[in-house]
Amino acid sequence: MNFIGIVSFVSDMIIPIVVSVMIIFGMKKKISVYDTFLEGATDGLKITVKILPTLIGLMVAVGILRESGFLTFLSELLSPAANVVGFPKEAVPLSFMRLVSSSASTGLLLDIFKNYGPDSFIGRFVSVMMSCTETVFYTMSVYFLSVNVTKTRYTLAGALIANAVGLAGALVITIVTFGK
């Protein structure tokens, strides 16, 4: 088995192991596991219902921004500046979209793989970059709105700094590891 096979085998094993361990341990402690499961699952469903309005509001806002062409416009605007600091301009729209929408950024990622190949410099860079950044706006909205907090203080600033460092780090690490 090659390395990627081992990695995907291990990740396939995580869920079955965690689920089994939880149940075995619960039974050992004489817990009525199925009743407890149902209790938790009911709460889990409530969570999903609770975040649905947030999701609708946010995905429509992102959808409008994307369909209007504004995101493309903004990333084109940023491209020259990105080029000055040595940031590959092909990756600007993706880096940007990554913060907003995971489905849209996956689409852009696959575009890059298709056009440049996953083993090109840009392909490697976006692979590394995708693993150290997060959909900030979505996560923030869902978590804060679930408890009705509207004053988010420095959360956005902190998250953007972390993602910017991730982005810059991904670029430097890719250059150091694979060359340009």
Binding site: V21, M22, I23, G40
Partner: peptide
Amino acid sequence: IVAFWSGIMRIGEKSGL
């Protein structure tokens, strides 16, 4: 999946895991 996982989590909470 969220409901399923919340159920499994609840077992883990009750058992002290």
